[in-house]
Nucleic acid binder design. Structure first.
Length: 943
RNA sequence: GCCCGGGUGGUGAAAUGGUAUACACGAGGGACUUAAAAUCCCUUGGUCCGCAAGGGCCGUGCGGGUUCAAGUCCCGCCCCGGGCACCA
């Protein structure tokens, strides 16, 4: 019987579905294992061969764990709120729910064909009101909580209110009250708190809530018409779509992730995540230790953060960010016009412009001076846009002798540069060495930087002019999106103050709107809803005007994905996001697999929400995933042509240009690229492209395309529809089958690595499966022998079981596939068709190639699914050979290959080697200094 | 600039400090076939010696070191990929 993948795969996929083979119950009598994939956003493009890579890996582990007796939770769902469906809705008027539904159905079809063992009865979708009811519920908990820095955990906001009522707001708590809380700046007493109006109290509380509304500088993307979080902006443009991003000050919902900065950092230590990923998160959190220093200005002061308080004697000016709230206050009348003009131009420039002009130095003097805390000297106060408003206090003490940025600013404006370290050439540049010795006159003179820093902090504290401080680069996460297709934020407004909806009002479902774009006045699409107000007394949604207006922004894409893993544990629960019993049984994710594009976005929010829910006491762990693996990308191969792009005296200049494959003797262009046009059988440079290229190389004009001038070469790049290099898994499955696809994707290389797809290579794994199949058949008839296996057969079997068992544990699937191939080649050579060899091998192959394994299992006479067959154990005793051919080295150089029995002890082995005639001949009567014996490896004789 | 990963055949890649290049692709040669497909077999790091069987030398980015033995460990470089970045 020939191996018919189509028939076998269709049949078993149907059986698994009909018999609910992979439905899992919360069964506390069995040990659990939770293997989770990052759920996909169902895009319209469908899957390419790169997408299922991680799913195949987690499916292998999930299936393996089932064989090993675990109760395995291996679910799948859709991150179904998102931008593309909304953009499509704006263009076509099609409701995003509809496109999402269609795309999800297509995904499901494609996923099913690969033969995953997902429990689809637990499917979740973030856009399902039954799901986002709980996303909204968590938001309400965030809104109703504050971070108690004394207990180092989130607590109910009611506790804070009690604290204000009994003892007011003092010390560290009060530090946050610096901004726009009407007249409230800094500490207040209990009596004062009680005297505040409800409105003022609510505004004060916004400074403490973990979900809060504030006036803040945000990343505004005009093209997308929405605010973006920091991780959604890269190089000044939006990560999705690449649209320019501006800085804009507006009222904005944020989550206080910064409160968790230290715990997010500390938590990394105990996680089994890749070093690179942990490092990325550490960088993103960006902890730096240093000092907070206050420079007195008249009766007030300017506070700065520095990592180098040891350089305080080198301070020659202060620089404030243009957005700094005190700029206006410290600008003298004489300087006012100039400063205001500067601030205006600085704040108007986009983030991107600012980044592009890093080399341009600009700034302006305010006319005022601050007092140096140590020397009492007058320090001029400047404004400069090299200081960022959002980091530290938005002001720096400038030490041109110790910081290159300050040095350039000082040079440019001719400000004094004071040497702070010994051996520094301050005329040339600042001395940023951290192992230098301080040369400033005073109490730090002669000290090493590392010793001077704590000494300076001590001195600051003594003077009351500052203290040690830790700063984080991490910012609070912008949480409101001016878009339609997201979870509505369950909040209504009275007198411009937000109030939470009662939990009984959840889910707050997305209202119908006539159009999906912003309103004419620039309000979010939800402002188009007719019924979007809250009637407090009757607790129901009413027509606009009939109650308090509801919030019109929606949550960002990462809201639902920050907790979805908990919902899989108990997906149909209507009373809770998941029952405590279910959570207590499944606990953390044992294995989480997904792409590394989520290192600073999803994975940070995911951990943040988990820690918050832990603080709430609703889950018993504070990290979501113990082990995480980032699968690499499978890249596409685009054909590139090496064509003459210019003729110069020296010869032709070649350049790689993207091009099609050759068809019928002609080159067909696969995709457009800027700079290049294809017209009348010639490639030419577009005007804009020519302009750009001419600047780079004046000889560049145009080039001809003739078959002689072309050499087509492959270029490895990201697989994407726009590059015409997409390989569709459906086509591969059609031709080779899902089992071959699964094996090949694993065989391609280490899971974490990116690697190019090469369709040729699949022949090897396809051939392997046919060979494996043929071991069971002789001229189309099932022919499996009940005879006892021979020693070499047992050796092959056990070596394979050992390797595969160990490899799955290490997630090294490429090497296990190789081992299967070796085994099949060996068994073919041995003409082995013994049941006792083939049956365990079939079980071992089942996680990788489940369809063929099921079919062969059936053919072997089993009536149940192979998926719960006990995992075969390997036995070391079968791996031993009687004799082993040892390489005999002399001083490390291999000279002889001699066979000795393996069961000799070291002493016996040494005696046997030295007694050997060929060895004696080599030794020429000399006595070796040392004989090194490594069992079953090598013998080295040191002369 | 700071911080992480990596550099092994034509390619994807193996290798608890112990015979470097397993496995697969590609390439070359051969068998079967009218032919093709499919299948099977052989060769495939470089170089030198040999008619041959076979053997020598060199080889894991570069230069040192530790060790009987280094792709693997240590020191100093070079190159590639990634993260963060006027973050004070």
């Amino acid at each position: 019987m020939a191996y018919d993948h189509k028939k076998i795969e269709a049949e078993w996929q149907r059986k698994w579905k009909d018999q609910k083979t992979f439905h899992v119950k919360n069964d506390p009598s069995k040990p659990k294992y939770y293997a989770l994939d990052m759920f996909p956003y169902p895009s319209g493009a469908g899957l390419h061969v790169g997408h299922p890579l991680g799913y195949i890996a987690s499916d292998i582990v999930a299936r393996f764990k089932r064989h090993a007796g675990f109760n395995v939770l291996h679910p799948m769902g859709y991150d179904s709120f998102g931008l593309p469906a909304e953009q499509y809705a704006i263009q076509t008027g099609q409701h995003p729910a509809k496109t999402t539904e269609e795309n999800a159905a297509r995904y499901r079809e494609q996923l099913d064909r690969i033969g995953f063992s997902f429990d689809w009865s637990r499917e979740v979708r973030t856009s399902d009101p039954k799901f986002y009811k709980w996303t909204q519920w968590i938001f309400l908990q965030l809104f109703n909580s504050f971070y108690d820095s004394r207990l180092n955990q989130a607590r109910p906001i009611s506790e804070l209110i009690e604290r204000f009522e009994s003892s007011g707001c003092q010390g560290q708590d009060a530090e946050v009250l610096t901004g726009d809380v009407e007249e409230i700046v800094g500490p207040f007493t209990a009596a004062e708190w009680k005297s505040f109006s409800d409105r003022t109290q609510q505004m004060v509380l916004q400074y403490f809530r973990l979900a809060y509304l504030s006036e803040a500088w945000v990343n505004w993307c005009p093209a997308l018409g929405t605010v973006l979080a920091n991780d959604e902006v890269k190089d000044g443009v939006s990560e999705r779509g690449g649209h320019p991003v501006e800085r804009k000050r507006m009222k904005q919902w944020s989550l206080r992730i910064t409160a968790y900065a230290q715990r997010l950092l500390d938590g990394l230590d105990e996680l089994d995540w890749s070093g690179a990923l942990k490092e990325t998160q550490r960088n993103w959190i960006g902890r730096s230790t240093g000092a907070s220093v206050r420079f007195a200005v008249d009766d007030d002061f300017i506070e700065v953060f520095t990592t180098r308080p040891d350089t305080l004697f080198g301070v020659s000016f202060l620089t404030l960010a243009p957005e700094h709230l005190l700029v206006g206050k410290y600008t003298t009348e004489a300087q006012r016009a100039e400063v205001e003009a500067y601030v205006k131009s600085a704040t108007n420039r986009s983030e991107r412009e600012r980044q592009a002009e890093v080399d341009k130095i600009s700034g302006v003097f305010t006319g005022s001076y601050a007092k140096h805390p140590f020397t009492g000297a007058e320090v001029p106060i400047w404004v400069g846009d090299y200081v960022l408003a959002g980091y530290g206090t938005g002001a720096v003490m400038a030490v041109p002798g110790g910081d290159q940025r300050d040095w350039r600013f000082a040079k440019h404006f001719n400000l004094p540069i004071i040497a702070v370290t010994e051996g520094a050439d301050i005329e040339k540049s600042a001395d940023e060495r951290k192992d230098a010795v301080i040369c400033s006159d005073g109490f730090m003179k002669g000290m090493k930087v590392a010793d001077a820093i704590p000494r300076a902090i001590e001195e600051l504290e003594k003077l009351g002019a500052g203290e040690g401080r830790i700063n984080y680069r991490l910012r609070d996460a912008a949480f409101g999106r001016q878009r339609y297709w997201g979870e509505p934020i369950p909040v209504y407004y009275k007198d411009d103050i937000p109030y939470p909806l009662p939990e009984s009002a959840l889910p707050l479902e997305l209202p119908e709107v006539d159009k999906f774009q912003p309103t004419e006045t620039g309000e979010p699409p939800l402002a188009r809803a007719k019924q979007w107000a809250w009637d407090e007394t009757n607790e129901r949604i009413v027509a606009n005007g009939g109650g308090s207006p509801l919030e019109t922004t929606t949550m960002p894409g990462w809201a639902g994905s920050s907790w979805y893993y908990l919902r899989y544990m108990d997906p149909h629960n209507e009373e809770q996001f998941a029952s405590p019993e279910a959570i207590d049984y499944w606990k953390q994710i044992d294995l989480y697999i997904g792409g590394n594009e989520h290192s600073t976005g999803h994975l940070l929010y995911f951990r943040f929400w988990t820690k918050f829910l832990y603080d709430l006491g609703v889950i018993p762990f504070d990290e979501p995933a113990k082990k995480l693996v980032n699968q690499g990308m499978i890249q596409g191969v685009s054909m590139m042509a090496n064509v003459v792009v210019a003729r110069t005296e020296k010869g032709d200049r070649y350049e790689l240009l993207p091009i099609a494959e050759e068809r019928n003797g002609a080159f067909h262009r696969n995709y457009p690229i800027e700079h290049v046009e294809f017209k009348d059988g010639r490639y030419t440079i577009s005007e804009a492209g020519a302009e750009a290229t001419r600047n780079e190389n004046p000889t560049f004009r145009e080039y001809h395309l003739t078959s002689k001038e072309i050499e087509v070469k492959p270029l490895v790049e990201k697989m994407s529809k726009s590059k015409f290099n997409v390989v569709n898994p459906d086509d591969i499955i059609e031709r080779y089958g899902a089992d071959t696809l699964r094996l090949y994707e694993m065989f391609l290389g280490p899971l974490e690595q990116s690697k190019p797809w090469d369709t040729h290579g699949i022949e090897g794994t396809s051939r392997f499966l046919r060979k494996f199949w043929n071991l069971f058949f002789e001229s189309d008839i099932m022919s499996v022998s009940e005879e006892a296996p021979t020693a070499p057969e047992l050796r092959t079997l056990n070596a394979t079981l050992k390797k595969v068992t160990e490899d799955i544990d290490k997630m090294s699937f490429n090497t296990s596939v190789s081992q299967f191939m070796i085994a099949v080649n060996e068994l073919h050579a041995l003409r082995c068709n013994k049941r006792d060899v083939l049956e365990p091998l079939t079980i071992a192959l089942a996680p990788f190639a489940p369809h063929i394994a099921e079919e062969l299992w059936k053919q072997l006479g089993h009536s149940d699914s192979i998926s719960t067959a006990p995992w075969p154990q390997w036995h070391a005793r079968f791996l031993e050979e009687d004799n082993f051919s040892y390489p005999i080295s002399f001083n490390g150089k291999t000279r002889l290959q001699l066979v000795f029995p393996v069961n000799l002890s070291k002493e016996e082995m040494e005696a046997a080697v030295l007694a050997n005639l060929e060895v004696q001949e080599r030794l020429e009567g000399k006595t070796p200094k040392k004989v090194i014996i490594v069992p079953k490896r090598i013998v080295n004789i040191v002369l």
